[in-house]
Design a binder for these strands. Structure first.
Lengths: 341, 341
DNA sequence: ATGAAAGCGCTAACAA
DNA sequence: TTGTTAGCGCTTTCAT
C-alpha cells in the first residue's frame, strides 16, 4: 500500500532489455508494416506479453503528430435517433482503429467551448452531429487542418465534408405519402427553432404543397421532442376539421401528436387524419403507434461520416464532398393504405 | 495547397518567443496553481491567444503521467436508459475537466479487447456500464492502478468501486406496488441471460413473493428489449387467466408486453392485469403506456459514478466503496390505484 | 518569479 | 535487419 511507487509502467525500454534487443526493434514490432525479422518480432511480442507492456499512444502520437483520437460532438444524445447514430459512429471508429472522444454539446456556447477542447488532443478528425452550428469550429479545424465532417448540418459551409439526408426528397415523400393516403388538406408540424435538416424537410414539404396548389398550414412546436408534439396537439386539435393530413418533422413529434390527438381529442388516426413522421426511430414501429414515416438510415449515415473522415485523414487534399443519403417511405398504420391493393 | 507544410502547430516555444519569456513561464501560465507573476501570465495569455496556441495534452500527459482521458465502456448505447446514463456521465466528466473516450461493447470478447485499448492512452479512470462482465479488466486496471467503477454490475468483485441500484428494494417495491393494486397471482418476466441488476431485481421479486406465500410464475424473454416483451406476450397470453399481476424486469420489456397483450390478446390493463416495469425510461410515461414502474435515476447514477472515479483518482488509497442507489415507486396507469383515495 | 536543462515514452532518420 | 541518435511538446527540478 505504501510502495505504490514500485508500480512503474512498463516501457519499451523494459521490453527491449528483456528481449535482448534495442528499443527500435520493440517499436517496429508494434508498428504495422515496419521492417523486422520474424524471430525478433516473436521475441519482442513474447516479452511484451510477459511484462504486460502496452504501447503508450500518447508518446507515439507526440512523435507521429497524430493521435488516433477522433472527436464526436453530439447533442441530445439521449434521443433515439441520435443515440443510434452515435453508437454506430463510435463502433465504426473503433473498428477502424480510432478512439472516439465523446463531447455532448447541448448549447451553442457549450459546443463552441467543447470543441476547442478537442484540439488539445491533436484529434485526427471530428464528426459533428449536434444541432448547434458553429462556423468558428470549422474555421479552427481548417486552420489546424483537422478533417471535419458535419452530419445533417447543410453544406453551405465550405471547408467541411457533409453527410446529410435529402431534405427535398423528404418533403416530396411526405407529400406523396399523404397524397396516396387521400389527404389533401395538409399541414406540417415543425420546431420553432431553426436547424438544417429538421426545418429543411418541413420547408421542403411546404414548398411542394404550394407547387401542387394545396398549401399547407404550418404549426410550430417548442422543440422536436415527444412532449412538444403532445403540446402541439392542443393547438392542432381545434382545427382538426380543416385538416386530413399532417407531416411531422420528426418521429418523436409525430408520436407525441398522435398521443395527444387520440387521448385528449379523441381523434382517430388514420380515419380522421393521416400522419407521417420522419426518421424512423424504433418507437415509430411499436404496436401502439405504427407510425407511417420516412426512413432515414442512422447506421448508413454514421458509417458514411466515419468513412469520409478517414478518407480525408489519409488524403487531406481531397476535394470536400457531400454525401446525400437516400430516403425510403414507410407506410404503416397512420396513413390510409394506397388504393391499389 | 502545397505549402501545407507551413501549417506548423504553434508550440509553447513560439508563444515563449512571442511573449519574450521562457517556455517554463508559458507552461506555468497554463498550469493551475503554478507560481507566476500576473504580468507574465497576462503577456503569455495574450500571445497565446494571438497565435492560437493550445496546450498539447498528449505532451503534457507524457510528462505528468496522466492524460485527463477517462474511458466509458457501455453496451446497448441506443437503449433509452443507457443513452441517458452515458450522456450524463460524459457531460459530468467534461464538466470536471476530463474527456471521455467512448467504447461501445456489445459482446464479452469485444469489451475485453476494447478495454485493453484504453490502456494505450493512460486513461485516468474507467467507468463500465456494459452488461458484459469481465474480471480480467478489473485485474488489469488494478495492476496499472487505474481507478475503475462499475455501474449496476454487482460488488462481488473486489478492487473496483460500484454504483448500483438496490435490487432487493426493487423486488420489494414491485411486490408492494402489485400488492397495492390488489394483485395476488403474480408473475415475473425476465431475460434469459444473466446480468447483475436485471436478473437480480427479478430474483429479488421472486424471493419476496415466496416469502409472502404467493409464489410467482417465471417467464423468460430472449433479452431485455421491447421486441422480447412483445414476443413474451405470446407465451403469457394463454395463461392470463391464472394471473393478475406481473413484474417486468425492464420498462422496455413491459412496454413490449403491454402492446402484445393489448393488441394481440385483447387483454385490458390494468383491469385484467396489473403491470409494473423497472427503470422509468421516458417512453414509460408516454400517454399510450402510462406504465407504472420503479424509478431508477440515471442521472444520479452517472454522476455518482463520475464522482467516485474522480475521488479515487485523487486518492487511490481510498477504501473501495459501493454506492447503493435508492429507488422510488411510480404508480401510473398500469396498476389499479391503491384503495386509500 | 524566472530560466536552463533534463527528461516523459516513443518513433524516425541514419548508420552499421 | 538492427542499433544509435535525435527529437516530438511539454513539465519540472534546480539554480539564479
Amino acid at each position: 500500500m505504501k510502495e505504490n511507487l514500485t508500480e512503474k509502467r512498463v516501457t519499451s525500454f523494459d521490453v527491449a532489455r528483456h528481449a535482448g534487443v534495442s528499443r527500435s526493434v520493440v517499436s517496429r514490432a508494434f508498428t504495422k508494416g515496419a521492417i523486422i525479422s520474424d524471430t525478433a518480432r516473436a521475441k519482442v511480442l513474447q516479452s511484451a506479453d510477459e511484462l504486460g507492456y502496452q504501447v503508450n499512444y500518447l508518446a507515439r502520437g507526440l512523435q507521429t503528430k497524430h493521435s488516433n483520437l477522433v472527436g464526436i460532438v453530439a447533442s441530445a444524445l439521449d434521443t433515439p435517433y441520435r443515440a443510434r447514430q452515435v453508437r454506430i459512429a463510435a463502433q465504426e471508429c473503433i473498428k477502424r482503429g480510432f478512439r472516439p472522444i465523446l463531447l455532448t454539446a447541448e448549447s451553442a456556447v457549450e459546443s463552441e467551448k467543447l470543441t476547442s477542447l478537442l484540439f488539445n488532443y491533436n484529434v485526427a478528425g471530428v464528426i459533428i452531429t449536434s444541432a448547434e452550428p458553429s462556423s468558428k469550429i470549422i474555421t479552427e479545424c481548417n486552420r489546424l487542418s483537422i478533417p471535419i465532417v458535419m452530419v445533417n448540418r447543410g453544406s453551405d459551409i465550405s471547408g467541411a465534408d457533409c453527410v446529410q439526408m435529402d431534405i427535398d426528397q423528404a418533403g416530396a415523400l411526405a407529400y406523396q405519402m399523404l397524397n396516396e393516403a387521400g389527404a389533401h388538406r395538409l399541414a406540417v408540424l415543425m420546431p420553432r427553432v431553426e436547424s438544417y435538416s429538421v426545418s429543411g424537410r418541413a420547408r421542403a414539404f411546404v414548398d411542394i404543397c404550394k407547387k401542387h396548389k394545396t398549401p399547407a398550414l404550418v404549426f410550430t412546436s417548442s422543440d422536436q421532442s415527444y412532449t412538444a408534439g403532445l403540446d402541439a396537439a392542443q393547438e392542432i386539435g381545434p382545427s382538426i376539421d380543416t385538416l386530413d393530413g399532417i407531416f411531422c418533422a420528426t418521429d418523436l413529434l409525430a408520436l407525441g401528436l398522435l398521443d395527444g390527438l387520440r387521448h385528449n381529442w379523441n381523434i382517430k388516426v388514420p380515419e380522421n387524419l393521416s400522419v407521417v413522421g420522419c426518421d424512423d426511430i424504433e418507437q415509430a414501429s411499436w404496436c401502439s403507434y405504427q407510425l407511417s414515416t420516412i426512413h432515414q438510415d442512422a447506421d448508413e449515415q454514421a458509417i458514411a461520416a466515419v468513412n469520409i473522415m478517414l478518407k480525408r485523414i489519409e488524403d487531406p487534399t481531397m476535394a470536400t464532398q457531400t454525401y446525400i443519403q437516400n430516403l425510403t417511405p414507410l407506410h404503416r398504420g397512420t396513413t390510409k393504405r394506397p388504393i391499389r391493393k
